[in-house]
Each structure stands twice: as C-alpha cells, then as structure tokens.
Amino acid sequence: MTSSSATARKALSKIACNRLQKELLEWQVNPPAGFKHKVTDNLQRWVIEVNGAQGTLYANETYQLQVDFPEHYPMEAPQVIFLHPAPLHPHIYSNGHICLGNFVEIILLASFFPLLSIHTVLVTMVCSFLEVFGI
C-alpha cells in the first residue's frame, strides 16, 4: 500500500529539527488556504489534508499528502506522496506516488531548495496538478 517507502529513515539532524519546528510554527500562524496540517507528534512525517480546488474535477474532495523529511532537510528535498485514496490523475499512480516523469519534475526540482519552505512547495505542487493539469 502506501507505506512502501517507510524503510528505516535516519533521524532528523539538529538543524533539520530546528528548521521544521520553525516551519510548523509558520504554518500554524499563517496556514495556506486549502491545506490542513494534521497534528501528530512526528516532526519528520507530516500528513496534510488538501481540498480539491473549486471548478475542477477535484472540487469538494479531500486528499491526504504525506511529507517525509530527510535527515539533512532542507539540504535535501522532502518526499511527498498522496495517501490512499489518491486523486485520479494522469501523474499520480494508484499507490500515491507522484510521477516525476515530466512537467511536475521540472516544477518540483526547480522549486525546491532550502530558501523555500514546505508550505511553498506544496502550494506550487498542488497548483500544478489542479490548475495546470486541471480538467
């Protein structure tokens, strides 16, 4: 199912921990519209609810994104997948993995680097699905 990639991950570095705490705080103070962080005590794995944008096939639907942060975040990019049931979309496999084959890869790779927060990455990514690819 969805947790196929949950092999042992190294614990977050001290810098990664600090950074994620700040991002979480920022998220709480200034939550992005359409996203909801599900509160857990796991700083390394965030689960985020996304509402499908109005006017698209995904309107009134809620999906869950799982974000796994690597040991050296933000030097390394987080891994983002959809939890079951994933939205039906040409670039999302039924196991939730997002196809990094073409357009989305460009958006993600060009977007992610330490000056961005996970907030920005998710908004960019989901917009690219629901607006650029919006049906």
Binding site: Y93, N95, H97
Partner: peptide, 13 residues
C-alpha cells in the same frame, strides 16, 4: 513504469 505497481513501489525512490 509498467502498471505492475507492487514492483514499482518496492523499487522507487
């Protein structure tokens, strides 16, 4: 990426 999702998932990222 064949539709054999189980294999693909094991492999992946």
């Amino acid at each position: 990426p064949t539709p054999d999702f189980d294999d693909w998932a094991k492999f992946a990222d």
